[in-house]
Design a protein around this nucleic acid. Structure first.
Lengths: 252, 252
DNA sequence: CGCGCGTTTGAACGGGCTCAAACCTTGTGG
DNA sequence: CCACAAGGTTTGAGCCCGTTCAAACGCGCG
Protein backbone atom coordinates (compact mmCIF):
# COMPACT_ATOMS: atom_id res chain seq x y z
CA UNK A 1 0.00 0.00 0.00
CA UNK A 2 1.29 3.50 0.64
CA UNK A 3 3.99 4.68 2.99
CA UNK A 4 5.16 1.23 3.98
CA UNK A 5 7.11 0.01 1.02
CA UNK A 6 10.46 0.42 2.69
CA UNK A 7 9.53 -1.41 5.87
CA UNK A 8 10.79 -4.99 6.16
CA UNK A 9 8.22 -7.00 8.06
CA UNK A 10 10.80 -9.62 8.90
CA UNK A 11 12.77 -7.49 11.35
CA UNK A 12 12.98 -9.08 14.77
CA UNK A 13 14.15 -6.21 16.92
CA UNK A 14 10.95 -4.32 16.45
CA UNK A 15 7.39 -5.59 16.64
CA UNK A 16 5.55 -5.30 13.36
CA UNK A 17 2.11 -5.97 12.05
CA UNK A 18 3.09 -9.31 10.52
CA UNK A 19 1.59 -12.74 11.05
CA UNK A 20 1.22 -12.14 14.77
CA UNK A 21 -1.37 -9.46 14.20
CA UNK A 22 -3.18 -11.57 11.69
CA UNK A 23 -3.32 -14.40 14.18
CA UNK A 24 -5.03 -12.17 16.74
CA UNK A 25 -7.41 -10.79 14.19
CA UNK A 26 -10.59 -12.75 13.99
CA UNK A 27 -10.77 -14.11 17.50
CA UNK A 28 -10.00 -11.24 19.81
CA UNK A 29 -12.16 -8.37 18.74
CA UNK A 30 -12.77 -7.03 22.21
CA UNK A 31 -10.68 -5.48 24.94
CA UNK A 32 -11.34 -5.31 28.64
CA UNK A 33 -11.33 -2.18 30.74
CA UNK A 34 -8.21 -3.56 32.36
CA UNK A 35 -6.40 -3.62 29.02
CA UNK A 36 -7.46 -0.04 28.35
CA UNK A 37 -6.13 0.96 31.74
CA UNK A 38 -2.80 -0.76 31.05
CA UNK A 39 -2.47 0.78 27.61
CA UNK A 40 -3.06 4.26 28.97
CA UNK A 41 -0.88 3.52 32.02
CA UNK A 42 -3.62 4.81 34.25
CA UNK A 43 -2.63 4.35 37.86
CA UNK A 44 -5.91 5.43 39.36
CA UNK A 45 -8.15 2.78 40.80
CA UNK A 46 -11.18 1.62 38.91
CA UNK A 47 -14.01 -0.18 40.56
CA UNK A 48 -14.31 -3.94 40.37
CA UNK A 49 -15.70 -5.52 37.26
CA UNK A 50 -12.87 -4.26 35.07
CA UNK A 51 -12.79 -7.62 33.38
CA UNK A 52 -16.46 -7.65 32.56
CA UNK A 53 -16.82 -4.48 30.55
CA UNK A 54 -15.76 -4.98 26.94
CA UNK A 55 -14.67 -2.46 24.33
CA UNK A 56 -14.79 -2.99 20.63
CA UNK A 57 -11.66 -2.99 18.56
CA UNK A 58 -11.22 -1.46 15.16
CA UNK A 59 -8.64 -2.65 12.69
CA UNK A 60 -7.16 -0.35 10.05
CA UNK A 61 -4.94 -1.01 7.08
CA UNK A 62 -2.10 1.36 6.28
CA UNK A 63 -3.45 4.39 4.49
CA UNK A 64 -6.97 4.15 5.87
CA UNK A 65 -8.54 6.99 7.81
CA UNK A 66 -9.18 6.50 11.50
CA UNK A 67 -11.02 9.79 11.97
CA UNK A 68 -12.25 12.23 9.37
CA UNK A 69 -12.60 15.91 10.12
CA UNK A 70 -16.23 16.91 10.19
CA UNK A 71 -17.59 13.46 10.91
CA UNK A 72 -19.87 13.08 13.93
CA UNK A 73 -18.19 12.25 17.21
CA UNK A 74 -18.79 8.66 18.19
CA UNK A 75 -16.25 8.21 20.94
CA UNK A 76 -12.57 8.25 21.79
CA UNK A 77 -10.03 5.75 20.52
CA UNK A 78 -6.92 4.31 22.13
CA UNK A 79 -4.12 2.99 19.93
CA UNK A 80 -3.37 -0.66 20.68
CA UNK A 81 -1.00 -1.31 17.78
CA UNK A 82 0.49 0.65 14.89
CA UNK A 83 1.29 4.26 14.12
CA UNK A 84 -0.95 7.02 12.77
CA UNK A 85 -0.66 10.69 11.95
CA UNK A 86 -2.93 13.49 13.09
CA UNK A 87 -3.37 16.32 10.61
CA UNK A 88 -5.13 19.60 10.28
CA UNK A 89 -5.40 21.52 7.05
CA UNK A 90 -4.89 25.24 7.18
CA UNK A 91 -7.41 27.64 5.70
CA UNK A 92 -4.95 28.26 2.87
CA UNK A 93 -4.57 24.53 2.21
CA UNK A 94 -1.34 24.11 4.12
CA UNK A 95 -0.99 20.82 5.96
CA UNK A 96 0.19 20.49 9.49
CA UNK A 97 0.93 17.19 11.22
CA UNK A 98 0.15 17.57 14.91
CA UNK A 99 1.66 14.27 15.93
CA UNK A 100 2.14 10.58 15.36
CA UNK A 101 -0.06 8.60 17.76
CA UNK A 102 1.25 5.17 18.73
CA UNK A 103 0.48 2.49 21.30
CA UNK A 104 -1.27 3.99 24.32
CA UNK A 105 -2.13 7.33 22.71
CA UNK A 106 -5.64 8.71 22.69
CA UNK A 107 -7.52 9.93 19.62
CA UNK A 108 -10.59 12.04 19.07
CA UNK A 109 -10.65 14.32 22.08
CA UNK A 110 -11.12 17.36 19.87
CA UNK A 111 -14.48 15.95 18.80
CA UNK A 112 -16.13 16.48 22.16
CA UNK A 113 -16.63 20.21 21.79
CA UNK A 114 -18.97 20.25 18.81
CA UNK A 115 -19.73 16.54 18.53
CA UNK A 116 -17.59 16.61 15.41
CA UNK A 117 -14.02 15.46 14.94
CA UNK A 118 -11.80 18.44 14.21
CA UNK A 119 -8.72 16.71 12.85
CA UNK A 120 -7.80 14.11 10.30
CA UNK A 121 -6.22 10.89 11.58
CA UNK A 122 -4.70 8.46 9.09
CA UNK A 123 -3.04 5.09 9.70
CA UNK A 124 0.60 4.98 8.60
CA UNK A 125 0.89 1.26 9.30
CA UNK A 126 -1.75 -1.36 9.93
CA UNK A 127 -3.38 -0.36 13.18
CA UNK A 128 -5.52 -1.69 15.96
CA UNK A 129 -7.67 0.77 17.90
CA UNK A 130 -9.94 0.37 20.89
CA UNK A 131 -13.12 2.38 20.91
CA UNK A 132 -14.57 4.12 23.93
CA UNK A 133 -18.08 4.92 22.74
CA UNK A 134 -19.81 8.13 23.79
CA UNK A 135 -22.52 6.14 25.53
CA UNK A 136 -19.99 4.55 27.89
CA UNK A 137 -17.99 7.72 28.25
CA UNK A 138 -20.87 9.94 29.25
CA UNK A 139 -22.79 7.38 31.27
CA UNK A 140 -23.38 9.01 34.63
CA UNK A 141 -24.12 5.70 36.35
CA UNK A 142 -21.79 3.53 38.38
CA UNK A 143 -18.74 2.99 36.29
CA UNK A 144 -19.15 5.75 33.75
CA UNK A 145 -17.70 8.41 35.93
CA UNK A 146 -14.40 6.64 36.42
CA UNK A 147 -14.09 5.87 32.75
CA UNK A 148 -14.72 9.49 31.88
CA UNK A 149 -12.13 10.63 34.36
CA UNK A 150 -9.55 8.19 33.00
CA UNK A 151 -10.21 9.36 29.46
CA UNK A 152 -9.78 13.00 30.36
CA UNK A 153 -6.74 12.27 32.45
CA UNK A 154 -5.24 10.74 29.33
CA UNK A 155 -6.37 13.74 27.30
CA UNK A 156 -4.44 16.00 29.63
CA UNK A 157 -1.33 13.99 28.86
CA UNK A 158 -1.93 14.24 25.14
CA UNK A 159 -2.18 18.00 25.45
CA UNK A 160 1.16 18.19 27.19
CA UNK A 161 2.81 16.03 24.56
CA UNK A 162 1.33 18.24 21.89
CA UNK A 163 2.67 21.31 23.63
CA UNK A 164 6.11 19.77 23.77
CA UNK A 165 5.87 18.90 20.10
CA UNK A 166 4.88 22.48 19.52
CA UNK A 167 8.05 23.71 21.13
CA UNK A 168 9.94 21.36 18.80
CA UNK A 169 8.98 23.66 15.97
CA UNK A 170 10.65 26.54 17.72
CA UNK A 171 14.26 25.47 17.66
CA UNK A 172 15.90 27.88 15.28
CA UNK A 173 18.07 25.41 13.44
CA UNK A 174 16.28 22.76 11.42
CA UNK A 175 19.04 20.29 12.22
CA UNK A 176 18.25 20.63 15.92
CA UNK A 177 14.54 20.09 15.29
CA UNK A 178 15.17 16.86 13.44
CA UNK A 179 17.65 15.72 16.08
CA UNK A 180 15.18 16.32 18.87
CA UNK A 181 12.41 14.71 16.88
CA UNK A 182 14.52 11.57 16.59
CA UNK A 183 15.25 11.72 20.30
CA UNK A 184 11.54 11.89 21.02
CA UNK A 185 10.86 8.94 18.75
CA UNK A 186 13.66 7.02 20.44
CA UNK A 187 12.11 7.66 23.84
CA UNK A 188 8.69 6.62 22.67
CA UNK A 189 9.99 3.36 21.26
CA UNK A 190 11.79 2.70 24.52
CA UNK A 191 8.63 3.46 26.51
CA UNK A 192 6.84 0.86 24.44
CA UNK A 193 9.49 -1.71 25.29
CA UNK A 194 11.32 -1.68 21.99
CA UNK A 195 14.86 -0.73 21.13
CA UNK A 196 15.54 3.00 21.50
CA UNK A 197 18.68 2.80 19.37
CA UNK A 198 17.36 1.02 16.32
CA UNK A 199 13.96 1.52 14.82
CA UNK A 200 12.07 2.11 11.63
CA UNK A 201 10.33 5.41 11.12
CA UNK A 202 6.72 4.76 10.15
CA UNK A 203 6.35 8.15 8.50
CA UNK A 204 7.77 9.74 5.37
CA UNK A 205 10.25 12.58 5.33
CA UNK A 206 7.42 14.73 4.09
CA UNK A 207 5.33 13.88 7.16
CA UNK A 208 8.25 14.75 9.41
CA UNK A 209 8.61 18.01 7.53
CA UNK A 210 4.94 18.82 7.97
CA UNK A 211 5.35 18.07 11.66
CA UNK A 212 8.44 20.24 12.15
CA UNK A 213 7.45 23.02 9.76
CA UNK A 214 10.21 22.48 7.25
CA UNK A 215 10.39 21.09 3.73
CA UNK A 216 11.22 17.52 2.72
CA UNK A 217 14.59 18.58 1.44
CA UNK A 218 15.51 20.20 4.71
CA UNK A 219 14.63 17.06 6.63
CA UNK A 220 16.71 14.96 4.29
CA UNK A 221 19.65 17.33 4.56
CA UNK A 222 19.41 17.29 8.34
CA UNK A 223 19.51 13.49 8.34
CA UNK A 224 22.59 13.57 6.15
CA UNK A 225 24.26 16.11 8.41
CA UNK A 226 23.61 13.99 11.50
CA UNK A 227 25.07 10.97 9.72
CA UNK A 228 28.12 13.02 8.77
CA UNK A 229 28.63 13.87 12.43
CA UNK A 230 28.45 10.22 13.40
CA UNK A 231 25.38 10.79 15.58
CA UNK A 232 23.05 8.48 13.69
CA UNK A 233 23.04 5.99 10.87
CA UNK A 234 20.29 6.13 8.28
CA UNK A 235 19.14 3.67 5.66
CA UNK A 236 15.86 4.85 4.24
CA UNK A 237 13.34 4.44 7.06
CA UNK A 238 15.69 2.57 9.35
CA UNK A 239 17.40 4.65 12.00
CA UNK A 240 20.30 3.65 14.23
CA UNK A 241 21.24 6.02 16.98
CA UNK A 242 24.95 6.03 17.71
CA UNK A 243 25.24 8.97 20.11
CA UNK A 244 21.90 9.39 21.84
CA UNK A 245 23.00 12.20 24.11
CA UNK A 246 24.12 14.32 21.20
CA UNK A 247 20.57 14.33 19.86
CA UNK A 248 19.15 16.54 22.60
CA UNK A 249 22.32 18.49 23.34
CA UNK A 250 21.92 20.71 20.35
CA UNK A 251 22.36 24.44 20.68
CA UNK A 252 19.09 26.21 20.17
CA UNK B 1 2.96 48.42 36.11
CA UNK B 2 4.23 46.45 33.19
CA UNK B 3 2.71 45.91 29.79
CA UNK B 4 -0.14 48.32 30.30
CA UNK B 5 1.45 51.70 29.98
CA UNK B 6 -0.05 52.41 26.59
CA UNK B 7 -3.59 51.43 27.51
CA UNK B 8 -5.97 54.32 28.12
CA UNK B 9 -8.46 53.26 30.75
CA UNK B 10 -10.85 55.96 29.70
CA UNK B 11 -11.72 54.45 26.33
CA UNK B 12 -15.42 53.79 25.94
CA UNK B 13 -15.46 51.45 22.99
CA UNK B 14 -13.77 48.68 24.88
CA UNK B 15 -14.38 47.44 28.41
CA UNK B 16 -11.42 47.86 30.72
CA UNK B 17 -10.51 47.15 34.28
CA UNK B 18 -11.38 50.64 35.43
CA UNK B 19 -13.73 51.81 38.18
CA UNK B 20 -16.38 49.31 37.19
CA UNK B 21 -14.19 46.40 38.16
CA UNK B 22 -13.25 48.07 41.40
CA UNK B 23 -16.88 48.51 42.24
CA UNK B 24 -17.49 44.80 41.85
CA UNK B 25 -14.40 43.92 43.81
CA UNK B 26 -15.05 43.53 47.46
CA UNK B 27 -18.65 42.46 47.44
CA UNK B 28 -18.95 39.83 44.76
CA UNK B 29 -16.24 37.34 45.43
CA UNK B 30 -18.27 34.36 44.35
CA UNK B 31 -19.76 33.12 41.12
CA UNK B 32 -22.66 30.77 40.56
CA UNK B 33 -22.60 27.66 38.45
CA UNK B 34 -24.93 29.51 36.11
CA UNK B 35 -22.36 32.24 35.56
CA UNK B 36 -19.70 29.64 34.84
CA UNK B 37 -22.01 28.04 32.33
CA UNK B 38 -22.65 31.37 30.61
CA UNK B 39 -18.99 32.29 30.52
CA UNK B 40 -18.08 28.98 28.92
CA UNK B 41 -21.14 29.16 26.65
CA UNK B 42 -22.05 25.66 27.67
CA UNK B 43 -25.35 24.69 26.09
CA UNK B 44 -25.73 21.38 27.86
CA UNK B 45 -28.26 21.15 30.64
CA UNK B 46 -27.15 21.16 34.24
CA UNK B 47 -29.33 19.91 37.03
CA UNK B 48 -31.28 22.31 39.18
CA UNK B 49 -29.55 24.16 41.94
CA UNK B 50 -27.24 26.00 39.57
CA UNK B 51 -27.76 29.09 41.61
CA UNK B 52 -26.86 27.49 44.90
CA UNK B 53 -23.37 26.19 44.15
CA UNK B 54 -20.77 28.93 44.50
CA UNK B 55 -17.27 29.19 43.09
CA UNK B 56 -14.52 31.34 44.45
CA UNK B 57 -13.04 34.14 42.42
CA UNK B 58 -9.41 35.07 42.21
CA UNK B 59 -8.22 38.55 41.33
CA UNK B 60 -4.88 39.20 39.68
CA UNK B 61 -2.97 42.36 38.96
CA UNK B 62 -1.17 42.79 35.66
CA UNK B 63 2.12 40.94 35.76
CA UNK B 64 1.08 38.44 38.42
CA UNK B 65 1.23 34.70 37.80
CA UNK B 66 -2.03 32.81 37.58
CA UNK B 67 -0.42 29.38 37.35
CA UNK B 68 3.18 28.38 37.85
CA UNK B 69 4.67 25.39 36.13
CA UNK B 70 5.43 22.65 38.60
CA UNK B 71 2.98 23.80 41.23
CA UNK B 72 0.45 21.25 42.48
CA UNK B 73 -2.83 21.11 40.61
CA UNK B 74 -5.63 22.64 42.64
CA UNK B 75 -8.32 22.99 40.02
CA UNK B 76 -9.26 24.60 36.74
CA UNK B 77 -9.80 28.31 36.22
CA UNK B 78 -12.16 30.19 33.93
CA UNK B 79 -11.30 33.72 32.86
CA UNK B 80 -14.02 36.17 33.83
CA UNK B 81 -12.18 39.38 32.97
CA UNK B 82 -8.82 40.38 31.54
CA UNK B 83 -6.18 38.83 29.31
CA UNK B 84 -3.35 36.44 30.15
CA UNK B 85 -0.62 34.61 28.32
CA UNK B 86 0.18 30.91 28.52
CA UNK B 87 3.86 30.05 28.16
CA UNK B 88 6.12 27.06 28.08
CA UNK B 89 9.88 27.27 28.22
CA UNK B 90 11.83 25.04 25.94
CA UNK B 91 14.60 22.77 27.22
CA UNK B 92 17.08 25.18 25.66
CA UNK B 93 15.49 28.16 27.36
CA UNK B 94 13.44 29.31 24.38
CA UNK B 95 10.06 30.76 25.23
CA UNK B 96 6.89 29.87 23.47
CA UNK B 97 3.55 31.57 24.01
CA UNK B 98 0.79 29.03 23.48
CA UNK B 99 -2.00 31.55 23.57
CA UNK B 100 -3.68 34.54 25.15
CA UNK B 101 -6.63 33.40 27.31
CA UNK B 102 -9.45 35.89 27.64
CA UNK B 103 -13.01 35.95 28.92
CA UNK B 104 -14.52 32.48 28.81
CA UNK B 105 -11.26 30.60 28.31
CA UNK B 106 -10.22 27.74 30.54
CA UNK B 107 -6.87 27.42 32.31
CA UNK B 108 -5.01 24.58 33.94
CA UNK B 109 -6.19 21.53 32.07
CA UNK B 110 -2.62 20.36 31.53
CA UNK B 111 -2.31 19.95 35.29
CA UNK B 112 -4.65 16.98 35.48
CA UNK B 113 -2.22 14.44 34.13
CA UNK B 114 0.42 14.59 36.84
CA UNK B 115 -1.39 16.76 39.39
CA UNK B 116 1.08 19.47 38.44
CA UNK B 117 0.56 22.48 36.19
CA UNK B 118 2.67 22.12 33.10
CA UNK B 119 2.62 25.66 31.78
CA UNK B 120 3.16 29.17 33.00
CA UNK B 121 0.18 31.54 32.95
CA UNK B 122 0.73 35.26 33.55
CA UNK B 123 -1.79 38.08 33.67
CA UNK B 124 -1.21 40.76 31.02
CA UNK B 125 -3.91 43.00 32.43
CA UNK B 126 -5.74 42.95 35.73
CA UNK B 127 -7.71 39.73 35.71
CA UNK B 128 -10.59 38.03 37.40
CA UNK B 129 -10.65 34.24 37.43
CA UNK B 130 -13.15 31.71 38.70
CA UNK B 131 -11.79 28.61 40.33
CA UNK B 132 -13.22 25.14 39.84
CA UNK B 133 -11.53 23.24 42.67
CA UNK B 134 -10.46 19.62 42.22
CA UNK B 135 -12.81 18.54 44.96
CA UNK B 136 -15.83 19.82 43.04
CA UNK B 137 -14.49 18.67 39.71
CA UNK B 138 -13.84 15.09 40.70
CA UNK B 139 -16.80 14.67 43.01
CA UNK B 140 -18.57 11.55 41.77
CA UNK B 141 -21.82 12.43 43.51
CA UNK B 142 -24.91 14.08 42.08
CA UNK B 143 -23.75 17.22 40.40
CA UNK B 144 -20.04 16.51 40.11
CA UNK B 145 -20.40 14.49 37.00
CA UNK B 146 -22.03 17.27 35.07
CA UNK B 147 -19.50 19.81 36.18
CA UNK B 148 -16.67 17.51 35.15
CA UNK B 149 -18.26 16.99 31.79
CA UNK B 150 -18.69 20.70 31.23
CA UNK B 151 -15.08 21.35 32.15
CA UNK B 152 -13.82 18.74 29.75
CA UNK B 153 -16.14 19.91 27.04
CA UNK B 154 -14.54 23.32 27.41
CA UNK B 155 -11.11 21.72 27.40
CA UNK B 156 -11.88 20.16 24.07
CA UNK B 157 -12.59 23.62 22.71
CA UNK B 158 -9.34 24.97 24.09
CA UNK B 159 -7.46 22.19 22.34
CA UNK B 160 -9.03 23.09 19.04
CA UNK B 161 -8.18 26.75 19.45
CA UNK B 162 -4.64 25.79 20.31
CA UNK B 163 -4.43 23.65 17.20
CA UNK B 164 -5.64 26.53 15.07
CA UNK B 165 -3.11 28.80 16.69
CA UNK B 166 -0.54 26.16 15.91
CA UNK B 167 -1.38 26.30 12.25
CA UNK B 168 -0.94 30.08 12.46
CA UNK B 169 2.75 29.47 12.89
CA UNK B 170 2.82 27.59 9.62
CA UNK B 171 1.98 30.34 7.18
CA UNK B 172 5.19 30.85 5.28
CA UNK B 173 5.14 34.63 5.20
CA UNK B 174 5.46 36.39 8.53
CA UNK B 175 3.21 39.16 7.26
CA UNK B 176 0.42 36.64 6.73
CA UNK B 177 0.89 35.23 10.22
CA UNK B 178 0.55 38.64 11.79
CA UNK B 179 -2.44 39.45 9.60
CA UNK B 180 -4.23 36.27 10.59
CA UNK B 181 -3.31 36.79 14.21
CA UNK B 182 -5.00 40.17 14.10
CA UNK B 183 -8.01 38.62 12.41
CA UNK B 184 -8.25 36.07 15.20
CA UNK B 185 -8.03 38.77 17.84
CA UNK B 186 -10.69 40.75 16.01
CA UNK B 187 -13.00 37.75 16.06
CA UNK B 188 -12.39 37.10 19.73
CA UNK B 189 -13.18 40.69 20.64
CA UNK B 190 -16.34 40.48 18.57
CA UNK B 191 -17.33 37.22 20.28
CA UNK B 192 -16.98 38.97 23.59
CA UNK B 193 -19.34 41.69 22.45
CA UNK B 194 -16.75 44.38 21.81
CA UNK B 195 -15.76 46.16 18.65
CA UNK B 196 -13.99 43.92 16.14
CA UNK B 197 -12.56 46.85 14.23
CA UNK B 198 -10.99 48.81 17.04
CA UNK B 199 -9.23 47.35 20.00
CA UNK B 200 -6.14 47.50 22.13
CA UNK B 201 -3.73 44.63 22.07
CA UNK B 202 -3.04 43.54 25.65
CA UNK B 203 0.27 41.92 24.73
CA UNK B 204 3.64 43.26 23.63
CA UNK B 205 5.13 42.78 20.17
CA UNK B 206 7.55 40.41 21.79
CA UNK B 207 4.70 38.26 23.11
CA UNK B 208 3.16 38.19 19.65
CA UNK B 209 6.51 37.18 18.25
CA UNK B 210 6.87 34.37 20.77
CA UNK B 211 3.40 33.26 19.80
CA UNK B 212 4.00 33.32 16.05
CA UNK B 213 7.61 32.13 16.13
CA UNK B 214 9.17 35.30 14.80
CA UNK B 215 11.25 38.10 16.28
CA UNK B 216 9.99 41.40 17.62
CA UNK B 217 11.41 43.24 14.66
CA UNK B 218 9.57 41.04 12.21
CA UNK B 219 6.28 41.65 13.99
CA UNK B 220 6.88 45.37 13.94
CA UNK B 221 7.77 45.33 10.25
CA UNK B 222 4.67 43.29 9.47
CA UNK B 223 2.53 45.87 11.26
CA UNK B 224 4.13 48.65 9.27
CA UNK B 225 3.60 46.77 6.03
CA UNK B 226 -0.09 46.24 6.80
CA UNK B 227 -0.45 49.93 7.56
CA UNK B 228 1.28 50.77 4.28
CA UNK B 229 -1.28 48.65 2.45
CA UNK B 230 -4.13 50.44 4.14
CA UNK B 231 -5.38 47.27 5.78
CA UNK B 232 -4.99 48.44 9.35
CA UNK B 233 -4.09 51.47 11.37
CA UNK B 234 -1.70 51.17 14.27
CA UNK B 235 -0.90 53.46 17.15
CA UNK B 236 1.16 51.57 19.65
CA UNK B 237 -1.17 49.00 21.16
CA UNK B 238 -4.29 50.38 19.54
CA UNK B 239 -5.38 48.65 16.37
CA UNK B 240 -7.98 49.80 13.87
CA UNK B 241 -8.95 47.36 11.17
CA UNK B 242 -9.79 49.09 7.91
CA UNK B 243 -10.12 46.09 5.56
CA UNK B 244 -11.05 43.10 7.63
CA UNK B 245 -11.42 40.71 4.72
CA UNK B 246 -7.90 41.43 3.55
CA UNK B 247 -6.54 40.12 6.83
CA UNK B 248 -7.43 36.50 6.17
CA UNK B 249 -7.16 36.65 2.38
CA UNK B 250 -3.40 36.47 2.43
CA UNK B 251 -1.57 34.12 0.12
CA UNK B 252 0.06 31.33 2.10
C1' DC C 1 15.17 64.04 34.90
C1' DG C 2 17.09 59.63 33.69
C1' DC C 3 16.41 54.91 33.49
C1' DG C 4 14.11 50.84 31.66
C1' DC C 5 11.43 48.99 28.37
C1' DG C 6 8.69 48.77 24.24
C1' DT C 7 8.62 50.04 19.48
C1' DT C 8 10.38 51.18 14.94
C1' DT C 9 13.62 51.25 11.13
C1' DG C 10 18.02 50.24 8.66
C1' DA C 11 21.84 47.20 6.89
C1' DA C 12 24.00 42.86 6.14
C1' DC C 13 24.28 38.05 6.78
C1' DG C 14 22.74 33.34 6.43
C1' DG C 15 19.67 29.48 6.54
C1' DG C 16 15.70 27.41 4.55
C1' DC C 17 12.81 27.49 0.44
C1' DT C 18 12.29 26.81 -4.42
C1' DC C 19 13.36 24.63 -8.57
C1' DA C 20 15.65 20.90 -10.65
C1' DA C 21 17.62 16.46 -11.51
C1' DA C 22 18.98 11.82 -10.32
C1' DC C 23 18.49 7.46 -7.87
C1' DC C 24 16.03 3.98 -5.41
C1' DT C 25 12.13 1.05 -4.12
C1' DT C 26 7.68 -0.77 -4.85
C1' DG C 27 3.70 -1.97 -7.45
C1' DT C 28 1.38 -2.63 -11.90
C1' DG C 29 0.58 -4.43 -16.30
C1' DG C 30 2.16 -6.36 -20.51
C1' DC D 1 9.98 -11.80 -16.18
C1' DC D 2 10.72 -7.25 -17.59
C1' DA D 3 9.38 -2.49 -18.48
C1' DC D 4 7.26 1.23 -16.84
C1' DA D 5 4.98 4.37 -13.69
C1' DA D 6 4.55 6.51 -9.22
C1' DG D 7 6.21 8.08 -5.26
C1' DG D 8 10.02 8.57 -1.66
C1' DT D 9 14.72 10.12 -0.91
C1' DT D 10 18.90 12.63 -1.77
C1' DT D 11 21.81 16.32 -3.47
C1' DG D 12 22.92 20.72 -5.88
C1' DA D 13 22.38 25.80 -7.12
C1' DG D 14 20.43 30.29 -6.47
C1' DC D 15 17.42 33.33 -4.29
C1' DC D 16 14.57 35.45 -0.74
C1' DC D 17 13.02 36.38 3.69
C1' DG D 18 13.68 36.48 8.51
C1' DT D 19 17.33 36.92 11.81
C1' DT D 20 20.90 39.47 13.86
C1' DC D 21 23.13 43.60 15.21
C1' DA D 22 22.65 48.39 15.70
C1' DA D 23 20.65 52.82 16.56
C1' DA D 24 16.97 56.07 17.59
C1' DC D 25 12.61 57.45 19.64
C1' DG D 26 8.65 57.49 22.91
C1' DC D 27 6.40 56.45 27.02
C1' DG D 28 5.87 55.49 31.96
C1' DC D 29 7.84 55.38 36.30
C1' DG D 30 11.05 55.94 40.13
Amino acid sequence: MMNVQAMPTTARWQPTMGHHAMKLGVDERWSTLKELQDLLRYDGHLQAGSEAELFQRRRLKAGQSALVMGQPFDGLYVVRLGTLKTMITNVDGGIHVLGFPMKGNLLGFDGIYQNIYMSEVVALTDCDLIRIPSSELFASGRSGNHLEHMAYWASSREIIQEQEAYSLTRSVKSEARVARFLHTMSQRFEDMGWSPNRFILPMTRRDIGHHLSVTVETVSRAFSALVQQGIIDVEFREIRILARDALCHFER
